[in-house]
């Protein structure tokens, strides 16, 4: 009982530092996932381009991302990028996370595009629409709808993965928990606290994705 009361104490008294961390996690996740989405869209289009060299480029990218741990990618980007360019730590973190999620999002979008019936493309083309207009107006809107559940899932993974930027020194949610834990030697209370924050974020996102799914289901 005392342990539980103690946890609540820590949870309530640490809210201001954790809100700072939450804000960083939020900015980091939002920026990296928006960028990852466009990276993913770009490589998905390369993969279905039917142009071999472009497909190879996309395959190589996905292979590299899937074949190496995220923490290694973040470290290489952080030490590599900050050696060559003067880029702030925040953007090094964003770059690492976006580079990583982009590969998974590329596969999700490619799968969704390929799941759209061939007849849709033919209908667009038969009305005189160009390949790119058919893609933009007919195929992609349907593919995105189909991809919403998988994209939501990938976004959740991305938010949780963002905790790894604490290893390059960022004070995101997990960074705050680590620092507070090591300052007080009360690791368990702070990691429980940070777990609650992550659960809350994921809960909000899950509800949001479910709402979007329901709204998009109107036309089905």
């Amino acid at each position: 009982m005392a342990a539980i009361m103690h946890f609540f104490d820590v949870f309530i008294n640490s809210y201001d530092v954790f809100l700072d961390g939450l804000w960083i996690t939020f900015k980091l996740s939002l920026a990296s996932l928006v960028i990852a989405f466009f990276i993913g869209l770009f490589f998905a289009v390369l993969k279905i381009s039917n142009i071999r060299i472009l497909e190879w480029i996309a395959d190589a990218y996905i292979w590299i991302v899937r074949g190496t741990p995220l923490i290694v990618q973040i470290f290489i980007l952080f030490y590599g990028l900050t050696d060559i360019l003067l880029i702030p730590m925040f953007w090094a973190g964003v770059a690492g996370l976006a580079f990583h999620s982009g590969a998974y999002i590329a596969e999700i979008i490619r799968g969704a595009i390929q799941s759209i019936e061939k007849g849709q493309r033919e209908a667009g083309r038969s009305l005189g629409m160009s390949t790119s207009l058919t893609m933009r107006r007919i195929i992609l809107p349907q593919a995105f709808r189909r991809a919403v559940p998988s994209l939501g899932n990938q976004f959740i993974i991305g938010i949780k993965d963002s905790s790894l930027v604490s290893f390059i020194g960022m004070q995101d949610l997990f960074g705050v928990a680590s620092t507070m834990g090591s300052n007080s030697f009360d690791y368990l209370s702070y990691f429980f606290t940070v777990a609650v924050y992550y659960l809350f974020i994921v809960l909000v996102l899950t509800v949001l994705v479910n709402r979007i799914e329901k709204r998009l289901a109107v036309s089905d």
């Binding site: 849709q120 033919e122 083309r125 038969s126 009305l127 007919i138 349907q142 089905d220």
Partner: peptide
């Protein structure tokens, strides 16, 4: 193709 209309067996309407 704008000058040649086409109707498909499976309609292929935009859902």
């Amino acid at each position: 193709r704008q000058r040649v209309g086409m109707v498909f067996q499976h309609f292929n309407l935009f859902p």
